[in-house]
Design a protein around this nucleic acid. Sequence first.
RNA 1: GCCCAGGUGGUGGAACUGGUAGACACACCAGCUUGAGGGGCUGGCGCCUCACAGCAUGCGAGUUCGAAUCUCGCCCUGGGCACCA
Length: 819
Amino acid sequence: MQDRYDPKSIEPRWQEHWAKKDLFRAGTRPGAPKKYVLAMLPYPSGEMHMGHARVYAITDVLARYARKRGFDVLHPFGWDSFGLPAENAAIKEGVHPAVRTPRNIASFKQDVVSLGISVDWSTELATSDPAYYRWNQWFFLRMLERGIAYRRRAKVNFCPSCNTVLANEQVEEGRCWRCGTVVIEREIPEWALRITAYADPLLEGLKRLDWPDRVVAMQRNWIGRSDGLEIDFGIKGARGKAFRVFTTRADTIYGATYVAAAPDHPLVTALAPAENKAELQAFAEKVRRAAKEVGEGAQAAEKLGMDTGIRAKNPFTGREIPVWVANFVLAGYGTGAVMAVPAHDQRDYEFALKYGLPIPPVVRPADDSELPRGQAFTDYGVLFDSGEFSGMPSEQARLAIAAEAQRRGIGQPAVNYHLRDWGISRQRYWGTPIPIVYCPKDDPDGKGIPVPDSQLPVKLPDIDVKEVLTGKGEPPLAKVPSWVNTTCPICGGPARRETETMDTFVDSAWYWARYLDPHNAREPFAREKADRWLPVDVYVGGPEHAVLHLLYFRFWTKVMKELGLCGIEEPAQKLVTQGIVKGRDGEKMSKSKGNVVSPREIIAEFGADTARLFILFAAPAEKDMDWSDEQVQGQHRFLGRVFRLVQASVPKIASVKANGAADDLRRRTHKTILRVTQQLERLQFNTAISSLMELSNAATDWTGDPASLRECLEVLVQLLAPLAPHIAEELWRGLGREEELALLHWPEADPALVIDDAYQIAVQVNGKLRGEVQVAASADDAEIRETAARDPKISGWLQGKTVKKVVVIPKRLVNFVVA
RNA sequence: GCCCAGGUGGUGGAACUGGUAGACACACCAGCUUGAGGGGCUGGCGCCUCACAGCAUGCGAGUUCGAAUCUCGCCCUGGGCACCA
């Protein structure tokens, strides 16, 4: 043991020891229960940042703790190495992504190692490796066979800066999630995955997960299921034609005074009187342009509309009502047309007010209060002026009216979702090629012909970076004729490859399953391994993925189950979303603010153990935290104190043997085992560290039996091991122990020592604290009451009063209620 | 507007299923240590008080012997969604 706490010399030594002995390899305890601890797949930037350090500190404590609890632990690592940053850097600097990426990985990996993270590196994978992405292609082909993957021509979100299409989930307030550029709408053919077919299972599965409420709520909102009725509003002078509308408030149908359709609704274009057509077209064009320009804050836009001249019939009142086009009706949701009930829908109300349309109320509040003035009454209530349904409560009327519509054959129950299918085509180079070819002979419509499995992987071609990665024009792969031009798998004639690549969220949708079997060349992973290791027990990562990655990876799991690859419905049982680490100024760390604190710098200065302890101590895992240099030093001082404590104690305790004394220090020691165990189980790392500080303080003050001190220090080091593993190893050997600390079984609390034989209990008079008394654990209520009443401080408060009631809570308090 | 999370000392944060609010740290103050540059040790530290008492967990009610914790109403902060019919 060295004479001074010097992490710089201790830490690399133990990191080397762990690696040499291969201590963190999964699958080495076949009979033991498994634990799969997973950190979200990082993009390999050249250097780890504090957010990463926080994630890995958390997963590492859990992995190390689980190993010491006897679990067979899988704590894997890999790289999300496809993606835009590498490609953009290539455009700027001319360095091929395939050159830059391995350099970045090596550098990042060194950071992970130097933080002391107990990774099983035999699992390591990189998504840009053809051995990995061939299985993306394989999954795509399986989905194609099942109709889950399909080609569509749709309006898509296009980021002009990233020069690519984005999925719905990748647009935030009308802007690109990555670069913040306002997204524009384009109509481009693309490949999409039918995630909407899984909307209900995705919704259902949320109920059984141990995930943070906010993430569950976000997913639920994102999926956005709404239950309602689709019903036809017949059109005057057009027999058999009708505006089909979707409503969740069928109970208000007697108040529907007009139909509002999306400006480009096909029936409007088809049926509007000739004299209105030009104007309608101009209106539609105007709305389209506004939508494009505004992008965000769309609700602020003024409601605009135009009477189409078409007349429809309200199927319940039988009255003729006008059909308007309105800028607030979305072509892509529901049926692209709504029945407008101005008295009971705020949007319809504002619109009706503006254009002078009637606003007849048909639902009144259930409590007989007045209908609100100047706005719509949108709550459920009781129907009136609604024919045979008058007097019915809304909840009931919704169903009754739907049933009647169904009976008359003009409507049926319908469900709508906010969730859209996942468009995965990207007009970029550094991603998985979509395994499709187009043959003019066998595929004249350009639907796409799947590349046969035997030809997978379709590898990315090597390219001249300057020529191909220009950031402009058609997709980069289209500029590589030698790659684009291929032969048709059906006729063998000339054909062209699909030149777009897959969204990188495909890569991260299933990497966690590939970790189980990263070198399997026959299948994505073996079923038996899936059965052993899945689902992930604890998944740790940033909350920013609440509706991106975390939705896609749930979807992918359901598909994998359908394909028989695994038996699980949900990929991760427990999710921890760690808070962000802010800079010294309390602002989010960013290069432009110049407030970035790098883990490298902290490890170099104070060591990995200090960095880990600080990160874990500063705040509960899910909360944001501010960087504080003072607190970092505090943790460094704590480790220094523990180091000196052990060092100074060694001569005193070297030769003592345990003697089973039940003194204060031993009690404390065993209570601490119990508490820290519970705290780690609950992921309360900050209080676990406080408990260790308390124990260390108690040991420092101890002047009693050296045997108790020895046990205390050994336990202290054991409990510290998952949190600050390097110093723990060093001290463990310093105490003369030779076992592999990282695998050595977690200490157990002696039940006899965690129960005290006397307690300090609080004494209250009328609920106010008036004193404390010491009572034996064996004392019954009457004895406790007596002892408390006799206490001089208390008796003063009781003097001359009548005791009406006494509440005794064993081990805690006595409360005298007096008058 | 809707949905989530959260408001506790100078600061980060503790407080088991309602039971001694402020653990553990940081900062600060006083003292000790004559190798003062992020060193070690001892003590103090919610507010108001010399003390006793009193007041304190965003605000206001309520339930209870007893509320940071439960209920209702409001305010504020952070995050998400947002013309979704």
